[in-house]
Design a protein around this nucleic acid. Structure first.
Lengths: 120, 120
DNA sequence: AGGCTATTTAACCAATCGGTTGAATATGCG
DNA sequence: CGCATATTCAACCGATTGGTTAAATAGCCT
């Protein structure tokens, strides 16, 4: 994986277990053990998943005695949505222009040369 | 990588070269060779990248003689934005409720027991 | 048919990933 | 202190990834 922030975030969310962890953290903070409970992998594996989310900036952690509760940092989502929305909009605009062109051709079929069109 | 659609899409966009390809396709369709030109990897490597984007449903392809022009399928972005927005909203709502609670405590500091509060 | 261009397939390689087990570290509690 | 709990670190393993080179396939053009 490339080490830029956007790549890290997309990559972190490319794993279903990590997405599920994020989903659960959206409802409230939780410790590693709490998060690990529903999955049938070891707590060490979950600890690694959390590390990935933390490195991506999606999760931050407090200290509470021997516990390390996780907190979702939802602002990072903005990075993704901005990227996504930008290119979605570009593609949709292009699509709309094509639609408009087709409508225009429907009303006024192109039968001659561009020169003829310019003369009208 | 898990084989569910959302994982595929996130995973496909976790690579900067593939994100750049998507960005360029947002401006208009292009062939494999055209897409490969600016990068200093082989055209075969780019062909593989396009395959990944295609499998994720982000790109579709026409046939034009020996060329295979790529077209961006922006609808798939919806899958991601829906997922992201859902949990972002949940986390922000939680944050807002916490804010409201803090404001309330500011106006009316908690000095007694819950029983006292109920009696007032 | 034969050659040129565009693209994919195959086989390989080093690095990374997601998982494991086992040991280490950190902190609260009696 | 000594023990239990929570979490991480280290070493390892098989599968996947992103790249390579070399060969195969597909479809123009003369």
């Amino acid at each position: 994986m490339a080490d830029d922030r956007l790549s890290q975030v997309f990559s972190a969310l490319a794993d279903p277990t990590r997405r599920d962890i994020v989903a659960r953290l959206a409802a409230g903070d939780a410790t590693v053990n709490e998060l690990a409970e529903p999955y049938d992998v070891t707590v060490q594996a979950v600890s690694k998943h959390i590390r990935v989310l933390e490195d991506a900036g999606l999760v931050s952690r407090r200290r509470d005695a021997q516990r390390r509760p996780c907190h979702l940092e939802a602002e990072v989502f903005d990075l993704m949505t901005k990227w996504i929305e930008r290119y979605r909009r570009e593609a949709e605009d292009r699509f709309r222009r094509l639609d408009a062109l087709l409508d225009q051709m429907d009303e006024q079929p192109v039968t001659g040369t561009p020169t003829e069109e310019a003369a009208s």
